[in-house]
Amino acid sequence: MTSTVSMTVNGKQVSAECEGRTLLVQYLREKLALTGTHVGCDTSQCGACVVHVDGISVKSCTMLAHQAEGCDVVTIEGLADGDTLHPMQEAFRENHALQCGFCTPGMVMSAIDMVNRHDTLDEKTVRHQLEGNLCRCTGYHNIVKAILAAHPVMKGTA
């Protein structure tokens, strides 16, 4: 039993047929071929699948595609402007905040939302706020540095 689900993804209007049980992350990966959003677990622990839905970070494995009907979704593919990276992507690159790259899309999307929600950030807050994102490669050290570096750039206070 399938039905059509429509939404805006990275500024484009999209629609695709999917089952009621199809998760948003499956819709993005399998129907739209946006494979930058990753699936790292099956219990909503790892955060590799974080995208923005109507401006808020969401684990896209925790939401049905149908629940995103009509929403404005931004994925990792929607951040950079051509060759110009988003300040958070640039901070990750500059601070070596990624190794294998698998958790990276979710980390970046969570980090942007974190900066959006905080006028100021310190290390303790960043570490606490990253609780929903797992990384096995970096030991988090450089991810924390990158987010603290991106904050003033995104806020225009750098």
């Binding site: 990966r29 494979t35 990753h38 990792i76 990276l85 790259g101 698998f102």
Partner: peptide, 21 residues
């Protein structure tokens, strides 16, 4: 030097096994 591979990973262009269709 900054890593050559980072651009693709940071922009969702990494090509992992499950991305092979």
């Amino acid at each position: 030097v900054k890593r050559k591979e980072d651009f693709r990973f940071l922009t969702g262009r990494g090509a992992y096994t499950d991305d092979e269709v």
